[in-house]
Amino acid sequence: MPALTEPLRSRLQYTFNGQYTGTPQWITDLEKGDDEGFFLPGSAVWAVHGAMSTIAAGVRALLVQALHPGALAGVHDHSRFREDPLGRLAGTIRWIYTVTYGSQEAATQASNWVSRLHTKVVGQYDDRHGVTHDYAANDPELLSWVHMAFADSFLAAYQQWGKAPIPGGPDAYVREWAVAGELMGVPNPPRSAAEMQRQLMDFDRRGILERTARTDDVVRFIKHPPLFPVLRAGYPLLFTGAVSTLQPRFRDLLGLRPPHIGPVALPAAGPAQVMLNGIGAVLGPRPVAEKHALARLDRLGWSSI
């Protein structure tokens, strides 16, 4: 059986971390450091980020981000998402896992590195009314939107496909992951699920979110990314599953609907669960990053008792 699944494993691994075989250096480096990190085993962050649901959450987060024209302009003008989408994905995963599982020093350094990259991401965009706006990736409003797009998506996906209750509940996850927002310079990130929803919907109430031709172009790309052929068959199930967890208002803004035949809605969560279970069976149920983080904690004499 391992021989039969190895081609699939290697392509999945390359998709998520840019390496066909072995463990990337940045993951083994999670064993380094002289502090326990911002998050520990048993935390809400470890529970949510260690689940297979993060795969669908990543798709959902990209869709949510695309609703903000400033965030969309930054990706369009400065990112190599078309030329190297898997490289961009691997970079995002690296930051999330370093903050989740690394030492406080490693998490801070990784966040500072991303912030330095963001200093070059500046420009202008025209909104749907033809008004020109300046944007900067390190602008507090954009940082807040991107932070919440990820947090809301990881939480929603786990609530749909997670295997166990979140330690402390959804509010604990939002409160804990606010640390990551602060590391990136987000002013006053939300500390509860309700507060996060209020802040997210406030962007819509203020008329900031919009759907343009550029939005539709990015959504088409997310819907049909240039994956390895062996991965393409199952991806639509993950995409429709991710869409099904979006707030109805966000789905409407994106012009997306859950799968349906006429007025009859088709199941989306179940088929996505089958795909996530299959990926977990190939890659393992928990991230390799956890093992290396636990090795650091063991070296430091950490105990859950």
Rank of each mutant, 00 (worst) to 15 (best):
T92I: 15
L67K: 00
R60L: 05
H133L: 09
E141C: 08
A73R: 09
Y135R: 04
T132V: 13
A137Y: 10
V146W: 04
I96E: 03
W161K: 02
Y97Q: 02
V114Y: 06
L117H: 03
P170I: 02
A71I: 14
A194K: 14
G169V: 03
V179S: 01
D84K: 12
A151K: 06
S53E: 04
E141A: 15
T92N: 04
G87Q: 09
Q124I: 14
W113K: 14
S153D: 06
S144Q: 12
V121Y: 00
M196Q: 08
I55M: 08
Q104I: 09
A151M: 06
D171N: 02
A51N: 09
P190N: 02
Y135Q: 01
A56L: 05
D77C: 14
A51W: 03
D139M: 01
P165S: 04
H118F: 10
P69D: 05
G169W: 03
G87E: 07
T92A: 10
G169N: 10
A51R: 00
P190L: 00
D152C: 11
V75P: 11
A156F: 12
H68R: 06
P167E: 07
A66E: 02
L67F: 02
K120V: 11
D77T: 13
G50A: 09
E105P: 09
L63C: 06
R82C: 14
L63H: 05
L67M: 13
G91Q: 08
S144V: 10
W95I: 10
S103V: 03
T98K: 07
